[in-house]
Amino acid sequence: MCSEKRSACAGPRAPVRLDLDRIRSAVSRIAPVFRNTPQYVCPPLGEALGCELILKLETANPIRCFKGRGTETVMARLADSGARAAVCASAGNLGQALAYSGRSRGISTTVVAGSGANPYKLERIRALGATVRIVDGDIEAARRLARQIADSEGAFLVEDSENIDTCEGAGTIGLELLEGVGPIDAVLVALGGGAMATGVGYVFKRLAPRVEIVAVQPRGAPAMALSWRAGSIVETDRTDTIADGVAGRFPIPAVLDDLLVVADHVALVEEDSIIAGMRMLYRRAGLIVEPSAALGVAAILEDPSRYAGKRVATIICGGNVIPADFERWVTEGVSRASTAC
Rank of each mutant, 00 (worst) to 15 (best):
S101E: 07
G102P: 06
R103T: 10
R103Q: 14
R103M: 11
R105H: 13
G106D: 12
S108W: 06
S108D: 11
T110D: 00
V111K: 03
V111L: 05
V112H: 10
V112C: 06
G114V: 10
G116Q: 09
A117S: 14
N118W: 00
N118R: 02
N118A: 00
N118I: 01
K121M: 03
K121T: 04
L122T: 07
L122R: 02
E123Q: 15
E123S: 13
R124I: 09
R124L: 08
R126V: 13
A127F: 01
L128V: 08
A130P: 04
T131K: 14
R133Q: 14
I134L: 15
I134Q: 05
V135G: 05
V135A: 03
D136R: 13
G137E: 04
G137L: 07
D138M: 04
D138V: 11
I139C: 02
I139F: 14
I139Q: 00
E140I: 11
A141C: 12
A141M: 07
A142D: 06
A142V: 08
A142G: 10
R144W: 09
R144I: 14
L145M: 14
A146R: 10
A146L: 06
R147V: 13
Q148A: 14
Q148V: 14
Q148F: 02
Q148T: 12
I149E: 03
A150R: 01
D151L: 12
S152A: 15
E153Q: 12
E153V: 10
E153Y: 04
F156H: 15
V158K: 01
S161H: 02
N163R: 09
I164Q: 02
D165N: 10
E168G: 03
E168V: 14
G169F: 11
G169T: 09
G169S: 05
